[in-house]
Design a protein around this nucleic acid. Structure first.
Length: 833
RNA sequence: GCGGGCGUGGCGGAACUGGUAGACGCGCGGGACUCAAAAUCCCGUUCCCCCUAAAGGAGUGUCGGUUCGAUUCCGACCGCCCGCACCA
């Protein structure tokens, strides 16, 4: 919605921790925060407020910047960039024109769902029961010419490169793989019986991955949008009605529940490619998609569930042509379930006895060799599900598409010197439709080529275009070109953090964009994000009053009586029901405002809670008790710093450069600190922030205990003072990435120079990570019975003797003989009897 | 329907490549301080048996397998979650 919500805070906090850590480790870090915080024109918010979306967005960039800073998500090493900024759009328009020149842009006409009241194109999910999502009016089908990026030409590369994205979650890679949807098959031209076919239509080309089942064919079917169907409908009102019905069903019920399979018999007969005397009926069928394959199929009901469902409604039967292993072909019949697995080919003349792959190959070879009209009847074809990306939007918000339509010259790019094409400021939103299109003057311009009156393109780009390359622009937002040498230096992004909801669209579009920018010479990389992490959502309980209205957590008081949690209205004490835990949303009103929490607890507390409560990839349940726990830790750390100071006395340690001899107590403090430091490094590298904070708390506990055990005299011993001072600095340094404000205060209180944010990361002393002795758990037959502490270098025989003389071991052995003695050095001992 | 993932205390969760299950926190119980409360600190907190402790038994969804040893590996089942969905 434009304002920062808890989901953003979690996202940015994670990135900020990694950035601060890497920076302390000596890396140059560019940590741009997501585009959505920087003013993706927020259509809904602007619509609700009846304000100019652009104005609203700019006002909010300033507010968001202040919010970010209040949370310690400082911008000192980020670059500021608004993706709706005219300069950003200028560069984006340049990219568009370069893509256009390179043949990566397409203009296609297709049927769209059109809301006649809102005067706008609807996405499939915006159509409910055949009605427009906002207007509630019946949706119309309309032909519209729109702009597309040719993503599908990169489908093979986008698929193949997924294997190399080894720092991406498998889940996202799999989702993209399915989305791209590669399949290998045959395109087969079926000749039509001339007596039944319309004039000039000699064949239908279908696509199949199951050429092995060709002898099980019972019919051909084409999509309602297939050219043949359109042509036949012109002279057949009944077919026309059927096609209209399919369109309505397709938009309405298709998305809600699986529609019944229906077909219209065209009367045309198609000839089987292996037998001229065998003809098949041709249907127009509602379940055949125009935008996959050739928009036409052959139907084999025995081995395809859809085809089987379909033939029931038109009275055809199913002949099995693949027999499952171990079944007698003579008795194998198809009931309500199609047989989809592998088997042996039957009822298929020359294919009989082959396996499925053998039969596919045989059919492909025979049909490739069979010629008609100088072309093979069939060609092997790899098909992709991935479609081109329609970027046209008939809306005000978004980057204008920089072309001009001229009656004489056709489509003419806007000259580079005239970029950016700016959006007009004087638009109105009081009427439906595209404000750019009905603006009185904006679109009327002379043709740049011939000077005659022409028309500006009034479509704007999908805002996903804005987010497809913002991370590249961040590397040098002031460059006069879309990119500069800085992009080569910084790209690809080492670590990208975002929600799983971007698994397909945003992440795939960005991958396409890098390839397109590479082809047009703007960048030298193919993949935008070498490391990807998908973080969980921030969720919260929901509260409902008797009348069904939702209440926000701020209006609710939680009481706990006898261990049962109850919710009441904070003011009226009206009892409320506690509902399910859901993603924070405005509609359920279960949001918590980050500003309120900052006001009460401070920014570091939010950050600590967000990072510590759950593993980052899982949802985090926002609960007040947990936040209070984080707040307690903030207080405890601050007190610990105060205690350290009083024990160390004024002025702190003064080792005089002599080699200190550490007493066991001092050594224990140092060991605890360096162990925690080593752990924190591993945890941050693996983005396991919850475990990281556990290790920090453990160290704080240890130091607190150590201090309370020391008496005044011992505490003043120089070795203890030095150890404590070192340990405290380590503690604060490792806390700094998570809780930067607190850490700076503590750093200063400890008398350290400069800022912890500018300090180098402490160095782990490896020698402190191992002990001279090691405590091994002792198992008897796999059950733990005792512990034994032995020198690290002790030999096996000595350990065995020591273990067998333990009372607990003797008791557990009950006088039985030792069968085997297992020693895993440094790990465990197991006595087998 | 197809594909993927996950099941650990009252709760969020931890456990390196098979090696002490329950780190750290929340909650809860008890105590200290206080006239009192808040805050803070200390102790306890998987379950069973037991006045308590020691000792013991059970235990990572269920059942089985591999192993000296399984939350971890394998098989079957049960439950929950997510993604895609007429893709020929």
């Amino acid at each position: 919605s434009g304002r920062i919500h808890m989901g953003h805070v979690r996202n940015y906090a994670m990135g900020d921790v990694v950035a601060r850590y890497k920076r302390a480790k000596g890396f140059n870090v560019l940590h741009p925060m997501g585009w959505d915080a920087f003013g993706l024109p927020a259509e809904n918010a602007a619509m609700e407020r009846k304000v100019h979306p652009k104005e609203w967005t700019y006002a909010n960039i300033a507010a968001m910047r202040a919010q970010l800073q209040s949370m310690g998500l400082s911008l000192d090493w980020s670059r500021e960039l608004a993706t709706c900024d005219p300069d950003y759009y200028k560069q984006q328009q340049r990219l568009f024109l370069d893509f256009l020149a390179a043949g990566l842009v397409d203009r296609k006409t297709a049927k769209v769902n059109w809301d006649p009241v809102d005067q706008t194109v609807l996405a499939n999910e915006q159509v409910v029961d055949g009605l427009g999502w906002r207007s509630g009016a019946p949706v119309e089908q309309r032909e519209l010419t729109q702009w597309f990026f040719k993503v599908s030409t990169y489908a093979p590369q986008l698929l193949a490169a997924l294997d190399r994205l080894d720092r991406w979650p498998d889940k996202v890679r799999l989702m993209q793989r399915n989305w791209i949807g590669r399949s290998e098959g045959l395109a087969i031209r079926f000749a039509l019986d001339r007596a039944t076919a319309p004039e000039g239509v000699g064949e239908i080309e279908i696509y199949t991955t199951r050429a092995d089942t060709l002898f099980g064919a019972k019919f051909l079917a084409v999509s309602p949008d297939h050219p043949l169907a359109t042509r036949l409908a012109k002279s057949d009102p009944a077919l026309m009605a059927f096609i209209d019905e399919c369109h309505r069903m397709g938009t309405a019920e298709g998305t809600i529940e699986r529609a019944e399979k229906k077909g219209y018999d065209t009367g045309i007969r198609a000839l089987h490619p292996f037998d001229d005397g065998w003809t098949l009926p041709v249907f127009v069928a509602n379940f055949v998609l125009m935008d996959y394959g050739t928009g036409a199929i052959f139907g084999c009901p025995a081995h395809d569930q859809r085809d089987l469902d379909f033939v029931h409604s038109v009275g055809l039967d199913a002949t099995p042509v693949v027999c499952p292993p171990g079944i007698d072909p003579a008795s194998f019949v198809i009931g309500d379930t199609a047989f989809l697995d592998d088997g042996i080919i039957i009822n298929s003349r020359f294919l009989d006895g082959m396996t499925v792959p053998q039969a596919k190959e045989d059919v492909a070879r025979r049909l490739e060799a069979q010629m008609r009209d100088g072309r093979p009847v069939s060609v092997r074809k790899v098909n992709f599900r991935l479609r081109d990306w329609g970027i046209s939007r008939q809306r005000y918000w978004g980057c204008p598409i920089p072309v001009i339509h001229c009656g004489e010259c056709g489509i003419v790019p806007v000259p580079l010197c005239e970029l950016p094409v700016r959006l007009p400021d004087d638009v109105t939103f009081d009427r439906p439709g595209n404000p750019l299109d009905r603006h009185p003057t904006w679109k009327h311009v002379p043709c740049p080529k011939c000077g005659k009156p022409a028309r500006r393109e009034t479509d704007t780009m999908d805002t996903f275009v804005d987010s497809s390359w913002y991370f590249v622009r961040f590397t040098d937002p002031w460059s006069d070109e879309p990119t500069s040498q800085a992009a080569a230096k910084w790209m690809p992004v080492d670590q990208y953090i975002g929600g799983i909801e971007h698994a397909i669209l945003h992440l795939l579009y960005s991958r396409f964009f890098m390839r397109a920018m590479r082809k047009t010479g703007h960048i030298a990389i193919e993949e935008p994000f070498s490391g990807l992490f998908t973080q969980g959502m921030v969720v919260h309980e929901t509260y409902r009053a008797k009348d069904g209205s939702w209440l926000s957590p701020a209006e609710v008081a939680i009481t706990s009586e006898g261990g049962i949690r109850r919710a009441v209205h904070a003011r009226t004490r009206e009892p409320l029901s506690i509902g399910s835990i859901e993603k924070m949303s405005k509609s359920k009103r279960n949001t918590v405002d980050p500003d309120d929490i900052i006001e009460t607890y401070g920014a570091d507390t939010i950050r600590l809670f967000m990072l510590s409560d759950s593993p980052p990839e899982r949802d985090v349940i926002w609960n007040e008790e947990g936040v209070q726990g984080a707040a307690r830790f903030v207080q405890r750390l601050w007190r610990l710093v105060g205690d350290t100071k009083s024990i160390m006395g004024n002025g702190g340690p003064s080792p005089n450069g002599e080699e200190l001899v550490y007493s066991p107590a001092a050594l224990a403090i140092r060991k605890a600190a360096h162990r925690a430091l080593a752990q924190v490094e591993i945890d941050i590298e693996h983005l396991r922030f919850n475990v990281c904070i556990a290790h920090i708390r453990e160290l704080a506990n240890t130091l607190q205990d150590a201090m309370s055990e020391l008496d005044e005299g011992a505490a003043r011993a120089p070795d203890v003072v030095a150890a404590l001072s070192e340990a405290m600095r380590i503690l604060i340094a490792v806390t700094a990435p998570m809780a930067p404000h607190l850490a700076e205060e503590c750093w200063q209180a400890l008398g350290a120079p400069d800022l912890v944010a500018r300090a180098a990361w402490p160095q782990v002393e490896r020698s402190l990570l191992t002990d001279a002795t090691v405590t091994l758990p002792v198992q008897v037959n796999g059950k733990k019975r005792a512990d034994i502490t032995v020198p690290r270098e002790a030999d096996g025989a000595a350990i065995e003797a020591a273990v067998l003389s333990l009372d607990a071991v003797k008791r557990a052995m009950e006088g039985r003989a030792l069968r085997k003695f297992i020693l895993v050095p440094g790990r465990i001992v197991n006595v087998v009897i």
